[in-house]
Design a protein around this nucleic acid. Structure first.
Lengths: 256, 256
DNA sequence: AAGTCCCTGTTGTTGGTACAACTGGTGCTA
DNA sequence: TAGCACCAGTTGTACCAACAACAGGGACTT
């Protein structure tokens, strides 16, 4: 019995440790139900507050989920989906009726869909700096909510300097089947170099809402800056990916 | 007054929303102290438990930190540090007394250090599968805890198939200044291709401990598989990076 | 001037209670 | 058989109380 009331470690932490190790060891398998709060109260001679503190800890670590009237369950390990970065390779874009992402997802046997909104905005500070914009310059913003099999999947915001795209179809709220990148290329701003920065954080309430993100699940924030042949940044794409549904993958050839 | 006791939204959620929006709007700046729990109890006419539920929510989102006897504070935004992936480019490794990471960190004006442990282990399932090992095969494991300016920074575990490295200095618990990759190259297993997979999750208690990770901060798990010219996987490096201290960066040239 | 002690204020931990809201099953009814 | 009503069980929300542990400042001592 690993519960020691004389230990300096808080009781609820010991309880959380106990349950956590049962999850890691496999004694409690994904999908399995944990003991009810009442059972844990009796087993460990603790108050309900204490038991709930421990269970809350596990939930915040992304290990468990719970539902009113149902119980606490070990989170079923996610049906992982790939974001193949590097899928913008040139030969992928031409001639197909779909963009690279749609093709990727379809290839995995899932059903993709997306809604697009377009607006003209002053970009956030970090985007403005990546695009090397002057104070007050505006951008076209194409916001994309992607769904797979009807479930929200990722949220992508692409910023284009208005000074470059003002007269193109990028500012039209339509799906551009051949890809916005191709439009850029047609007006002489083909992207020849990318800079990717990946951060991880807990989602904002808006994101939790839009992407149906459970408690204890972080998000990737994937920022891609595209540069044209003159080294001018022509696009910043910010993609928010719930971490339980996405692995970001890169394939690198060791040049030389 | 956004607090509505008749709302269906739980009181502690409304309170959390209220405080959160003050943080996002900048009314509460990084480092600023939030009202004390007693003050919040009075302002919102709520019990201490309810107030603490709201504050706990913010902490789990990584927005605030608290300390016994001190108070609750808006988390000071992180002094971000870069992990320049792609720093293994060939010309970087030769002739220097330091490895690529040490060079990188020093270039940023910080003081790096690392401790290395070596052992022979049966690798975890996912690593075994990435290395295409048979059941029961063992690997050399070099575990590296890196610190910057005396603070724990990242945890890296590199697995090498014993069938390849058994007779090399990789199994010795010493620092290999020219890099383990170079040793691999010398015995005919130069890595010409990498596969990187990046996931994000909440840290395990061990990791929280070893890397001093605050509540509400996720980690990146960066997995790199190195393949030699015969497409044989010769190394799997798993690196755990606290997300408040690391941005993962890739530079990509659009081949052709 | 420097150090020590203590006191106050703060968060951390743990106990208790009550009711609301929801799930899943049981058994009844049409 | 299908549908409905109900009930027991479970988690969610909210309240109250008490003590522990720690930080920081003020007062006092040396």
């Amino acid at each position: 019995m690993p519960i020691d009331p004389h230990s300096s470690r808080a009781l609820y932490r010991q309880l959380a440790d106990e349950l956590r190790s049962k999850i890691y060891s496999g004694e409690l398998k994904p999908g399995a139900q944990l003991p009810t709060e009442r059972e844990l109260m009796e087993q460990f001679d603790a108050s309900r507050n204490t038991v709930r503190l421990a269970l809350g800890q596990l939930a915040n670590e992304g290990l468990t989920v719970s539902g009113r009237g149902r119980g606490h369950f070990v989170r079923a390990s996610a049906p992982l989906l790939f974001l193949a970065t590097r899928s913008e390779s040139p030969d992928r874009r031409a001639n197909t009726a779909n963009d690279a992402w749609t093709t990727d997802v379809t290839a995995q046997g899932r059903t993709p869909a997306q809604t697009i909104e377009v607006s003209i905005v002053r970009p956030p500070q970090n985007v403005a700096s990546l695009l090397e914009l002057e104070e007050g310059e505006t951008t076209a913003l194409r916001t994309r909510l992607r769904t797979v099999d009807g479930e929200a999947n990722s949220l992508s915001m692409s910023y284009f300097p208005m000074s470059i795209v003002a007269t193109t179809e990028i500012v039209q709220p339509d799906d551009i089947v051949r890809g916005a990148n191709r439009v850029l290329a047609e007006i002489g701003h083909d992207q020849v170099r990318y800079l990717d920065q990946i951060t991880a954080r807990m989602p904002t309430p808006d994101e939790r809402d839009a992407l149906r993100i459970g408690a204890g699940i972080p998000v990737h924030e994937h920022v891609r800056v595209g540069y044209d042949a003159d080294d001018v940044p022509v696009r910043v794409a910010v993609t928010v990916l719930p971490a339980d549904r996405h692995i970001i993958q890169y394939e690198l050839a060791n040049a030389q």
